[in-house]
């Protein structure tokens, strides 16, 4: 019985990759988000945020790399997760296709503005 289950052939299609992606990115995101939240929300505190604070933080390139990782993995995990939830409600092939394109557009948009800000850094007004 268990041998039968183990020998089940799972084709390497998009859905299989997406399924695996959710789990593997989860393992990476747990420490990444954890450390980010403890540092930003508990040690620094959201009420202490300022342009000067972000500027001084991004002086160190390591933080920018960290933030790029966080941006890419967290938002992609979120879009893939939202897609799974939406597909529970949307069954027609046509509507799923539209959903995919809309999600891809949102993904491109948010990842782009996030990456531009991390690479561009803080611009002091005045």
């Amino acid at each position: 019985m268990s041998a039968e289950i183990n020998s089940t052939h799972i084709p390497k299609k998009f859905e299989t990759i997406s399924w695996k992606w959710m789990r593997l990115s989860a393992f990476l995101l747990i420490p990444l988000v954890w450390f980010h939240s403890i540092l930003q929300a508990l040690i620094t505190g959201g009420h202490n945020l300022s342009l000067e604070y972000i500027q001084s933080r991004w002086l160190f390139t390591g933080w920018r790399i960290y933030d790029i990782f966080l941006l890419a993995f967290a938002f992609s995990h979120g879009i893939a997760g939202l897609r799974q939830v939406l597909f529970d409600f949307i069954q027609s092939e046509k509507k799923r296709k539209i959903t995919n394109w809309v999600l891809l557009a949102i993904w491109c948009c948010i990842i782009t503005i996030g990456a531009i800000a991390i690479i561009g850094g803080v611009r002091m007004p005045g």
Binding site: L51, F75, G78, G114, M124, P125
Partner: peptide, 25 residues
């Protein structure tokens, strides 16, 4: 997950104003 996704989207959009529109930040 849904709440985190909405928060994350707003978080990225608002934080990106440090470059795109610093006076908004």
């Amino acid at each position: 997950g849904l709440a985190t996704f909405i928060f994350l989207t707003m978080h990225i959009a608002t934080t990106s104003t440090v470059f795109l529109a610093p006076s908004w930040y």
